[in-house]
Write a protein that binds this DNA or RNA. Structure first.
Length: 302
DNA sequence: ACCCAGGCGGGCG
DNA sequence: CGCCCGCATGGG
């Protein structure tokens, strides 16, 4: 392991990024109130912490410092043009306060398989339990890596082959519940040759259609995979929170179908709708928008 | 006890 | 198509 190096950053918050229920949140180890995190990338364990405009990192494993820096830039969206993105999603008072409150939160870009597994596990589930299930699967099914004589050891992210070979009861022992059969079947489809690589070259619409052929992947999970696994920033995942928040903030509480909300989001935020979604989701969730006891919020207020 | 959680698949009209 | 239901599990 080499010493610590750093990347200069601006409009970046490691804390908000890792806390906001993205794939890394589900299996990375968040420390120091969100200002530090460690995670395994390939066969290398990476430690990251932020102090002001410096993002410090160190590593255990074979990857070079240069490749880790490149991975961090890619993964944390450090090269996203935040000035332009904020400009295009700062459409109303609600979005404005979301941006103000969580400035620096990035949409992360993760491995497609890691993203797919994370969001299949996320369905009809809560963040705390998703974390527990992901960590269990990593420790039980991920190949163990050891470095040096000090006995430093950690597990790689499990391969889909490993999960395809696992039994449903084994997966359920990690708390996966009724999702266990989806996980096994999706892993089996990938092992049988379903190409996640080919998705990369497809249009958003075609890619979504293709991903939804996987067991356990529906409209919402497909959009999550496209947004956080492929960097398709126009994807707009609609979960119970986003649906409730959009209805409450932009339609005065009126019920809207998922289809109507997709159309609304595209019209409103276009190619950066995915960024708008992440800020809507996190700000709305923290403020309990549309839930009992929330403070009043509306797009037109004030 | 009861309700909910970053939904999806399957069945029905 | 759209609608409705069941689904494992743990925490509030």
């Amino acid at each position: 392991m080499d010493g610590e190096k750093y990347i200069s950053v601006r409009d970046f918050s490691l804390k908000y990024t890792v806390e906001s229920a993205q794939p890394l949140t589900f299996y990375g180890d968040i420390e120091s109130g969100g200002n530090a995190v460690s995670f395994v990338s390939g066969s290398t364990k990476v430690f990251v912490r932020q102090k002001g405009r410096k993002l410090y990192f160190r590593r255990i494993g074979s990857a070079s410092a240069g490749s880790v820096e490149k991975e961090l830039r890619r993964r944390f969206g450090l090269d996203h043009d935040m000035r332009r993105i904020y400009e295009s999603i700062d459409t109303d008072p609600f979005m404005h306060s979301a941006i103000e409150k969580y400035r620096g939160m990035r949409v992360t870009l993760n491995d497609p398989w890691e993203t797919a597994l994370s969001f299949v596990v996320s369905q009809f589930n809560n963040v705390k339990r998703i974390r527990g299930i992901m960590k269990c699967m990593i420790s039980r099914f991920g190949e163990q890596v050891k470095y040096g004589t000090s006995g430093v050891a950690f597990n790689k992210f499990p391969s889909y082959q490993a999960l395809a070979e696992a039994s449903v009861p084994d997966l359920m022992r990690c708390g996966a519940g009724f999702r266990a059969k989806y996980i096994k079947e999706m892993a089996a489809e990938l092992s049988a040759g379903f190409s996640l690589r080919e998705i990369r070259g497809m249009s958003y619409e075609r890619a979504k259609e293709r991903l939804m052929e996987l067991k356990g992947v529906g409209d919402k999970v497909a959009d999550c995979i496209l947004l956080m696994g492929y960097g398709k920033l126009e994807a707009f995942p609609i979960d119970t929170w986003v649906k409730r928040i959009v209805e409450h903030v932009y339609f005065n509480g009126g019920k809207k179908s998922v289809k109507e909300i997709h159309a609304f989001a595209q019209e409103m935020w276009g190619k950066h709708a995915g960024y708008a979604q992440q800020y809507l989701f996190w700000h709305g969730r923290e403020a309990k928008v549309g839930k009992r006891g929330q403070a009043s919020v509306a797009a037109t207020e004030k």
